[in-house]
Structure formats: C-alpha cells, structure tokens
Amino acid sequence: MKIPVSITINGRQYDRDVEPRLLLVHFIRDVLGLTGTKVGCDTSQCGSCTILLEGVSAKSCTCLAVQADGASITTIEGLASHDGLHPLQESFWNKHGLQCGFCTPGMILASHELLRCNPNPSDAEIRHGLEGNLCRCTGYQNIVRAVRDAAGAAEGGAQ
C-alpha cells in the first residue's frame, strides 16, 4: 500500500507516495535528502531526530510520514533566514556548543522549543528542558551556555 502525502518542509511543499510504515525521519533524510536531521538511538531517547512539527518539537523517529500529511515542518536546514543564522545557531557557534556536531540539529530545535515555552530559563530549567537530547561528546556545559546566551539575545529583540 502507498499513501499520497503532502508535507511542507522549510516552506517548500513536497508531494510523494509513501509506504505507511515510512518514518518521518526517513522521509526527511532518505526521500528528500535533507540530512541535517539525524538518526541516533532510533528509540525516541536521544533527540537527534528532533524537528518542529507545526512549530512544536517532535521526535521524527517516532512519527510516521503519513501522520505528518498536510503538516508544516521546520528542520535545522530551515531555521536560518536570508538575513543570517538564527540566534540559537549564532549562540551555539559563539559558545562552542558543539563538538562532533551530531546532536546539534536536535539540540538546537529542542532549545527552540524550550525558549518558545520559557523565554528566560534558569540553568536548571535549560538542563531539564533538554533532558530528551543526548550529547555523546558530553559537551553539555557549553550547550547550556549557548542556550543562556540565545535567551539573552532574544530578550534584546534579536528574534
């Protein structure tokens, strides 16, 4: 069985026929070639597949492509605007919030969700808000600094 889906990713609409069992993360990576979104644990624990589904964070390894039919999705490739990097991307760069970079797309989108729900988080709230994302380089200190920095930037109206 194939099901037609129409999914808008980073502002561009994609119409494809997919198997019902196709995971959203494989639709994004393998069908569309947008490889910024990663497959890590594949069991919804590590968060490297995090995307924004209708503006809200979701783990794309635990969602079927057919469930996202008609939805609007943002992946890491769509976060920057024509004017430059998103403040979170700038902060991860400036504060060295990445080492190998594998977890970074998910970390940044999970941080986006955190700041959407809580624009001025404490360090404890940042750590709690990122509990669904694992960094195998254990670079958490600078990730927390980066999110704190981005929250400050947002306060100044950069977003």
């Binding site: 589904l53 809200v56 969602c63 999970a110 969700e113 669904g132």
Partner: peptide, 9 residues
C-alpha cells in the same frame, strides 16, 4: 513522562 518532545506527541 519522557521529555518535552515526547510529551508534545
């Protein structure tokens, strides 16, 4: 339950 992304879905 889980984490924020899990709780969203």
């Amino acid at each position: 339950i889980g984490d924020p992304a899990v709780r969203n879905r």
